[in-house]
Simulated scan of single mutants.
Amino acid sequence: MDFSGLSSAEQAHVNKLVEKRQFQGFLTMYGKLVEKCFNTCCNDFTSKTLSSKEETCVSNCAEKFMKHSERVSARFAEMNAEVTSGQKNVSG
Rank of each mutant, 00 (worst) to 15 (best):
Met1Cys: 14
Phe26Thr: 01
Val83Asn: 15
Leu6Ile: 04
Glu70Asn: 15
Gly31Leu: 05
Val83Lys: 15
Ser59Cys: 09
Leu27Met: 05
Ser4His: 08
Lys88Val: 01
Ser73Ile: 15
Lys67Met: 12
Met29Glu: 09
Thr49Ala: 06
Arg71Ala: 15
Lys67Ala: 10
Asn89Thr: 04
Ala74Glu: 07
Thr49Leu: 11
Tyr30Arg: 15
Lys64His: 09
Lys20Cys: 03
Asn43Arg: 00
Phe76Lys: 15
Val14Pro: 06
Glu35Ala: 07
Met66Pro: 03
Val90Gln: 04
Ser59His: 14
Ser51His: 00
Asn39Ser: 09
Phe76Pro: 04
Thr49Ser: 12
Leu27Thr: 06
Gly25Ser: 06
Met1Phe: 14
Gln11Ala: 00
Ala81Ser: 05
Asn60Trp: 04
Ser51Glu: 02
Asp2Ile: 03
Lys16Val: 00
Gln87Ser: 14
Val14Lys: 04
Gly25Met: 08
Glu78Ile: 01
Glu55Asn: 08
Glu19Asn: 11
Met29Leu: 10
Val83Ile: 14
Ala12Ile: 02
Leu50Lys: 04
Glu63Gly: 10
Glu35Ile: 08
Ser8Glu: 14
Ala9Gly: 10
Thr40Ser: 08
Gln24Ser: 07
Glu10Gly: 05
Arg71Ser: 15
His68Asp: 13
Glu10Val: 03
Gly92Glu: 05
Phe65Asn: 03
Lys88Trp: 04
Lys88Glu: 00
His13Leu: 09
Leu6Pro: 00
Gly5Ala: 12
Asn43Ile: 01
Leu33His: 03
Gly5Leu: 09
Thr46Ile: 02
Ala74Leu: 13
Gln87Asp: 14
Ala74Cys: 14
Asn43Met: 03
Thr84Gly: 11
Leu17Cys: 12
Lys32His: 12
Glu63Val: 09
Leu33Gln: 05
Lys32Met: 14
Ser85Gly: 09
Ala77Gly: 02
Thr40Trp: 00
Lys53Ser: 00
Ser73Met: 15
Ala74His: 15
Ala74Phe: 15
Glu70His: 15
Met66Ile: 13
Asn60Thr: 11
His13Cys: 01
Leu6His: 06
Cys42Met: 08
Val90Cys: 11
Phe38His: 08
Arg75Trp: 11
Leu17Lys: 03
Met1Ile: 12
Glu63Asp: 14
Ser7His: 08
Glu70Trp: 15
Gly25Trp: 02
Asp44Leu: 07
Phe38Gln: 04
Leu33Ile: 11
Arg75Glu: 13
Asn43Gly: 02
Ala62Thr: 09
Asn80Cys: 09
Glu10Ala: 04
Ala62Lys: 07
Val14Asp: 06
Thr49Glu: 10
Phe38Ile: 00
Leu17Gly: 07
Phe38Trp: 02
Leu33Phe: 13
Lys36His: 06
Cys57Gln: 00
Val18Ser: 10
Val14Leu: 10
Val58His: 05
Cys41Thr: 01
Ala74Tyr: 14
Cys57Asp: 01
Gly92Trp: 05
Asp2Gln: 07
Val90Asn: 07
Val34Trp: 04
Phe23Glu: 12
Thr56Leu: 10
Glu35Pro: 06
Phe65Gln: 06
Arg71Phe: 14
Glu54Ala: 05
